[in-house]
Design a protein around this nucleic acid. Structure first.
Lengths: 133, 133
DNA sequence: TCTTGACTTGGAGTTAACTATAGATTATAA
DNA sequence: TTATAATCTATAGTTAACTCCAAGTCAAGA
């Protein structure tokens, strides 16, 4: 039922060094160990890893994730604090989503120009909105 | 018509150190100077800055931006190479957009739970899809 | 002209997030 | 049991992208 560090790392496509690092800095809670000291990841531990990896992929800082974990372990009196933290992070991601959208649109435009250009041999811009390259 | 480094930096909300750094590593082409050696930014230079800042905000690496500028300055024989570079970067941004979307949705779910929780005083998960926190 | 403030270069320092190394211990398979 | 593979800790190193600093030069107003 429970998994080794290697198995968890394969599941989430990260390295054992990274996973131990996440535990050390509190991005995930401390995991259970065998009598010999080897880490074992049960369902709950894997849930925390999933959460950490998902947040990191979107660009949430390890510091914010660790803060959430810290608050979580303090119990029910931190519900509001956790809500505030998550709301703040969501705001950041929504802003990032806007930036991303704008840049993808700019790239779409440029790429369409280049697709023309590689056929005609000439690159021509519309020179709209301060764009010159 | 042309702008000082300070004016350009205010326009794009970056620091002069960053702008000089961008020029030094080729993220923007070298800009014109006054006889005394002070940088002046004309329309075209500002277009390049705009481009760099936009790409950086979306997470495109300075290396990729500099490579594009390098190819651009080599002329028409690099049209295909520039198209390939831009296409590759767009792919990365589209993938990032997916990650961002997934994480925002997860956050939306969590936040809705926490909004309930701060009223009821109890936090309860649906425990779907490996989520445990 | 003087002085105050903006600008210059070259290089060093910082921060976040890993990533690698060494040397010891534990686990697994023949 | 013995070799081989996986894991452990502690700590140092790396990378990307700035960011700061010193010491000198340039520009604009009184």
């Amino acid at each position: 039922m429970s998994m080794s560090i290697k198995e968890v790392c394969e599941k989430f496509d990260i390295t054992p060094d990274t996973l131990r690092y996440y535990e050390r800095i509190g991005v995930i809670p401390e995991v259970e160990r065998t009598p010999g000291g080897t880490r074992r990841y049960d369902e709950e531990a894997i849930g925390w890893v999933n959460n950490a990896v998902c947040m990191r992929k979107a660009g949430v800082s390890v510091e914010a994730i660790a803060e959430y974990v810290r608050l979580y372990r303090m119990g029910d009196e931190t519900l509001q604090a956790r809500l505030d933290l998550l709301s703040g992070e969501r705001e950041k991601l929504l802003r990032q989503q806007e930036e991303l959208k704008a840049t993808i649109e700019l790239l779409n435009y440029k790429i369409s120009r280049y697709e023309e250009a590689v056929i005609t041999g000439v690159l021509s811009w519309d020179k709209k909105e301060g764009e010159t390259e």
